[in-house]
Computed example of a mutant assay.
Amino acid sequence: MGAKSTGPISPNHLIEVVKTAAKTGAQVVMDAVNKPRNITYKGLTDLVTETDKMSEAAILEVVKKNFDDHLILGEEGGIIGDAASDYLWCIDPLDGTTNFAHGYPSFAVSVGVLYRGNPAAAAVVEFVGGPMCWNTRIFSATAGGGAFCNGERIQVSATNQVERSLLVTGFGYDHDDAWATNIDLFKEFTDVSRGVRRLGAASVDMCHVALGIVEAYWEYRLKPWDMAAGVLIVEEAGGAVTRMDGGKFCVFDRSVLVSNGALHAKLLEKIGPPTEKLKNNGIDFSLWYKPKDYRADV
Rank of each mutant, 00 (worst) to 15 (best):
T181V: 14
L199I: 12
S165G: 04
W179K: 08
S193W: 09
G200E: 07
E188G: 05
G172K: 02
A178Y: 06
F189S: 00
N182Q: 04
E163P: 01
F171M: 04
D176A: 07
K187G: 14
L199V: 08
F189V: 03
S165H: 01
S193K: 08
D184L: 14
V192C: 06
D184I: 11
G195K: 01
V196I: 15
D174W: 07
E163M: 07
T181I: 11
F189A: 02
R197M: 15
I183V: 15
V196M: 06
D174Q: 09
D184W: 10
K187M: 13
T190P: 03
E188K: 09
G170C: 10
N182H: 05
D177P: 08
D191A: 14
G170S: 15
H175T: 09
T181P: 08
D191V: 07
E188N: 06
T169V: 00
R194P: 06
D177H: 11
S193M: 08
W179N: 06
F189L: 04
V168I: 15
V168K: 11
D177C: 08
T169L: 02
V196S: 03
R197I: 14
T190W: 03
E163N: 06
E188Q: 12
G200T: 13
R197E: 11
D174I: 10
A180W: 12
D176C: 09
R198E: 13
G172V: 04
Y173R: 08
L185C: 00
R198F: 12
S165V: 04
E163W: 07
T181C: 15
V168Y: 08
V168P: 07
D174P: 00
D177N: 11
G195E: 03
A180H: 14
D184K: 13
R198A: 13
S193I: 09
K187H: 15
H175M: 10
K187W: 13
F189H: 00
F171W: 08
Y173L: 10
G195T: 00
V168C: 14
L185H: 01
L167P: 01
Y173N: 11
L167R: 00
D174G: 06
L199Q: 06
D191G: 07
R197W: 12
F189Q: 03
R194Q: 15
V168D: 11
R164N: 13
A178C: 06
G195Q: 01
L167T: 04
A178T: 05
D191L: 13
T169G: 01
D176G: 07
L185P: 00
V168T: 12
D176L: 07
T169W: 01
R197P: 04
D191I: 06
L199P: 02
A178H: 04
V192S: 03
G200H: 13
G170H: 15
E188F: 06
Y173T: 14
F171V: 03
D184H: 12
K187S: 14
E188C: 05
D174S: 09
G200V: 14
H175Q: 12
L167M: 04
R164L: 10
L166V: 15
Y173F: 12
L167C: 04
D174K: 09
N182E: 02
D177M: 13
